[in-house]
Amino acid sequence: MEVFSEYLIFSARYDVSMVTELDDSKPEIKAVTLDLWETLLLERDGANEQRNLIRCRNLARALSKFGVKISVDRLISVLKAMTPWLLTVWEKNREVTHLDQIRFIIKAATDGSVSLREEWLDELSSAYVSAIYELPPYLNPDAPQLLRWLKDHGKKIGLICNVGRTPGFILRRFLKDEGIGNFFDVMIFSDEAGIRKPHPEIFRMAARRLGVKPSEIIHVGDNLRSDVWGAKNAGFKAIHFSTRKGRDTIAESDPNSLISISRKLGGLKEEEIIPDRTITSLAMAIEGIEELER
């Protein structure tokens, strides 16, 4: 009876319904982070293979200036043989810079008889990374609409990207050239961070730089393991951008490609990775974000 009396006194002083509402409230969403490849930037079928051919042609041409003769076919063969090494490093959520990739290629293509010299770096780096401009991906047509909506609604915007063969400094420039670079408050590229998604630290790094708690951030991306599982492990909410095409189609056509490898879930099962929302177009992210804020 005494306890009940205390409850009546409490009820008289405070609106109990308000207490319940506070308990059920959701954290305000203050920021949204986005994946890059096959979320903001899309690939045409066969683009990666063609871009690798361009890289090898450019490298062969650049190396010849320094008196190193390596055929394009040999470079292509080595580029493909590099995949298991990349996979070994990536499985540890670590990154391989484009310069380390070039070092691997030259050493393997010459059976160790030639090493990358300091004075060659600029020329060979340019040859390797310029392929994205010679055969560019295309901007998701829904990307500008989503980015403008986020800015108009006061959300901070971050980019969290696992790079492959194109380094962050080139991707940053490419996004600026595409007219969307200035939307981002923070851009994090795995080669600059030294760590890859799905490791939660790369997401926490984004949260720190945005000045926002992980629980106040939604991440949007196409990869279940890297984007959804990684983001949720870091305390973010996650929206899965699933189109059942794009990289999924490319991965099925070439199971040994880097795209296919990035799609693998490791020891996880797809049904174990549960996004907060699933969308089939980037424009739908607006509705998904609004739903998660209610």
Rank of each mutant, 00 (worst) to 15 (best):
S25M: 15
F189K: 02
R55A: 04
W229S: 14
T278W: 00
E28C: 12
R277L: 11
F203D: 03
A109L: 05
I70C: 01
L147M: 09
P198A: 06
I289P: 03
R277F: 11
A234E: 04
I286N: 01
R247N: 13
L210G: 01
G267D: 15
R51H: 05
R225T: 06
I106H: 03
E293L: 05
V96F: 00
V129W: 02
G211Q: 00
Y133F: 14
W85Q: 13
N256D: 14
E290V: 14
I170T: 12
N223K: 09
W90V: 00
K80A: 13
S215K: 08
K176L: 12
D45L: 12
R244S: 13
A109Y: 08
E134L: 14
K269Y: 10
T278I: 13
V72H: 01
D23K: 15
Q101Y: 05
P136Y: 07
S71W: 04
S11F: 08
T110N: 04
Q145T: 14
L87Y: 07
L224V: 03
D177F: 06
L135G: 11
K92W: 01
N58C: 06
E2F: 15
T243N: 07
A108L: 05
E293D: 04
L40Y: 01
K65S: 10
R74D: 03
P255D: 06
V16L: 13
D23G: 12
I29L: 00
L224R: 00
G168Y: 06
N58E: 12
I132P: 02
T249N: 09
P200W: 00
R103S: 15
